[in-house]
Design a protein around this nucleic acid. Structure first.
Lengths: 115, 115
DNA sequence: GCGCACTATTCATTTTGAAACATAATGAAT
DNA sequence: ATTCATTATGTTTCAAAATGAATAGTGCGC
């Protein structure tokens, strides 16, 4: 008895705050790209995302976190840029840690799905 | 030391098959409404969803499950209708069972989130 | 004080996905 | 054969969201 189709579970998770979704994998990727490139502009390019949207996401994160996840440098040498704060670094780590635990559990709980 | 903001994790899960997402909470709701109303038309109304889309979702589910989740009755008394198969019933149960286990775990794993 | 490369912001345009509309086709019951 | 409520399917419309383009603001370094 071998089944012809394979089914497996996918899990998506995000952090919710009183005003709705606060931090999911998309924003985490954005944070990582800001860390990597040193600016919102280049992070957005990296992700083929409009600067406008990337900027809005950063605004929202900073507004709704207890302390900002990204500091923005305006003007100056190289025009400025953006870097992660300690809170930003922690956010990435916490998210991935959580994601790993939950996904591992989900996989462990789902063998032999059949439909 | 009391934090002013509360963060908690949200989890969304779905069953994936080789061609992509196969069954998530949306399709499960649709199945439940088909069971409840006896037709795709009325299930769609119940959910304020276009019949066309509901119909497409059913088609897709049936095509990609090993055996159909919904049987459709064409013409005849009352014009026809749709009912769940045993596989359809099982799909609902399996999905909710899985969802409950994973969400319970997620909540248990996430106390004191801070950002 | 000029240039540079970025942040910040507005506005018009495009894209895209959903919804709405229209119209057959079906088959049991009368 | 007509009726009826449904399934089945193509076409059109619409609205929301993403994108792109354009413009201004910033501040260090030369």
């Amino acid at each position: 008895m071998s089944d012809n189709k394979k089914y497996n579970v996918e899990v998506r998770l995000w952090i919710e705050e009183s005003d709705g979704p606060f931090l999911g994998i998309g924003k985490v990727w954005l944070l990582e790209n800001i860390r990597k490139t040193g600016s919102i502009t280049n992070a957005a390019k990296e992700m083929k995302m409009a600067y406008r949207q990337a900027w809005q996401l950063v605004e929202e994160m900073n507004r709704r976190a207890e302390s900002p996840l990204v500091v923005k440098l305006l003007g100056g040498k190289g025009g400025g840029g953006a870097r992660l704060t300690e809170a930003g670094e922690r956010a990435i780590a916490v998210f991935y840690e959580l994601e790993k635990r939950i996904k591992d559990f989900a996989i462990k709980e789902t063998q032999n799905l059949k439909f």
